[in-house]
Design a protein around this nucleic acid. Sequence first.
DNA 1: CGCCTTTGACCGGCGC
DNA 2: GCGCCGGTCAAAGGCG
Length: 299
Amino acid sequence: MEQDKDKPLHGPASITTEFAGESSWPLGADDSDGSYFYSVDSNRSILSDFGWNLEPVQPNRIGPDVDGLWVPAQSDLTGSVAEPIGAAAGTSSRSNNQSVSTSSSEDLPEKSTVSDEKPPPEIPRKSKKKGEKRIRQPRFAFMTKSDVDHLEDGYRWRKYGQKAVKNSPFPRSYYRCTNSKCMVKKRVERSSEDPSIVITTYEGQHCHHTVGFPRAAIITHESPFAGCHLAPTMSQIYYPVQMQRENNATFSSSVSQPCQTQDEVGGSRNVIAADDELQHPPIDEGLLGDIVPPGMRNR
DNA sequence: CGCCTTTGACCGGCGC
DNA sequence: GCGCCGGTCAAAGGCG
């Protein structure tokens, strides 16, 4: 159905990414009970912690030349608030805004209950035991102003589902990392408020290196997860804060509270995005540069 | 042939 | 208890 949109990001240069905090798995159209925005720099460290390297791939700039992880720059920024999503979409549509949101409900060292256990022959579907709760991995979401849904992040994904979302004309796609040992999932949906915004939500941490950017995990000195252990991460650092959600504007504006709260809580990395940072992406070399610091590339 | 997407059905959580 | 909804499964088909 959404085949055009689901293609990996190759195209139009207009990509604006906001990393938005999310404490509940549903995001965007539905219940978001918490949300954080972070600066680009903190995004990097956050994503690095997750072992992520978000790489919007542009026509002339395809993966392999990039390593893709970020220096965990922290603490440069002070407590201003990330620009609201709506504003990002509207006022700075050409800037590469980013704001990250991470969240975690539980982060248990166990694997997700899905798909690893083999169902007894007599049970045709669903191996999950009754009463067994779904285990949520640490997750984060980001919003990308882009024409395409699927951002290249250096990993390979297999789509395992697509669902229509209530209150949204756009379906939500579910992806799983193709690495059999890797339980990372991601969700991709389009904002119903602003169709140009793609909301991507990651859950879990990769236990392997990227496909396209093999050095990624090595580079991140703060990424202890490269070695395939599920270390406690965001749940120890970020704290969900209740927020209202209804539309992007609300979503975004309420972010300030969580950010401040985190700051107060004293998370080790609760750096909050600065407006100017969001409005003036630190990179001049296109989207890639926007995410990967020059020093981290092309080695 | 292997990998991936599509898609309808199933399951569990949650609100009423 | 019931219905809604999000998330997942897995068969079928497509593609390189």
